[in-house]
């Protein structure tokens, strides 16, 4: 029970400091909105196929996440709270707490991005349940990889725009599956048709989160 309480405390700490300044949330929100609107203006009145629609949506989501989510560990390093966390909690608690916090942010990001996209383009979604499942599984895989890599770049001296470079090639399997699943959801293909993609997403999220949990110890300790 101690472990769960520790992880929950890390999550609450992150959430509370975020709610005080709302910096990361606002950056993420503004980035996803401006990127989406740029994409929508660039398309104009042109009607694009479902494949291109879902591809554009997910590219915006992945780029927003890779730019907006790199701060969670850098801010610990900047404010000097890293040492306190290292002393008072175990590495796996920190990872679980940060993962939960990132997952919350990514779920919010996905919801906003999808709602804006669907409303502005006026796309009717024929399988909303499938779309929700795709968004949730995509968020799970995305947050697992992002949390570990955010911890990695916080350790690099010249971190700058390093997260997108490290993250995007690793997310190609995720991108391909979510794009296909989103397209099937828009077309109304149903659950059975998207089985392969959903299973791949579950596998990807499981593999990345387990690997990240094991590897996080080596990033966290000095």
């Amino acid at each position: 029970m101690n472990w769960i309480r520790g992880a929950w405390a890390v999550f609450r700490k992150d959430l509370r400091t975020e709610l005080r300044s709302r910096y990361a949330v606002n950056v993420l929100l503004m980035f996803v909105l401006s990127a989406l609107l740029l994409v929508l203006f660039a398309i104009g009145q042109e009607s694009v196929s479902e494949r291109v629609q879902s591809a554009l949506l997910w590219i915006v989501i992945l780029f927003s996440a890779s730019i907006g989510l790199g701060r969670s560990f850098i801010s610990e390093e900047e404010t000097g709270t890293m040492l306190l966390l290292q002393l008072n909690t175990r590495a796996s608690m920190v990872f679980a707490g940060k993962l939960l916090y990132t997952l919350l942010l990514v779920l919010g990001l996905n919801t906003v991005a999808v709602l804006v996209f669907l409303i502005v383009l006026g796309i009717p979604v024929r399988s909303p349940g499938l779309l929700a499942a795709t968004l949730a599984l995509g968020a799970l895989g995305l947050s697992g990889a992002t949390t570990l890599l955010a911890a990695l770049i916080a350790r690099a001296a010249r971190s700058g725009p390093l997260l997108p470079v490290l993250l995007l090639p690793l997310l190609v399997p995720l991108l391909l599956s979510v794009v296909t699943a989103t397209r099937k959801a828009i077309l109304g293909a149903g659950w059975a048709a998207a089985e392969t993609e959903l299973l791949t997403l579950v596998g990807f999220a499981g593999a990345t989160i387990s690997a990240a949990t094991l590897l996080f110890d080596y990033v966290w300790m000095d």
Binding site: L148, P169, L215, Y218
Partner: peptide, 19 residues
């Protein structure tokens, strides 16, 4: 840090190469 990234990338490679 590089070793962690290398091992993490190896975990995603089966998806790229086989799945």
């Amino acid at each position: 840090i590089a070793a962690v990234y290398n091992l993490f990338a190896v975990v995603t490679m089966p998806f790229l190469l086989y799945v």
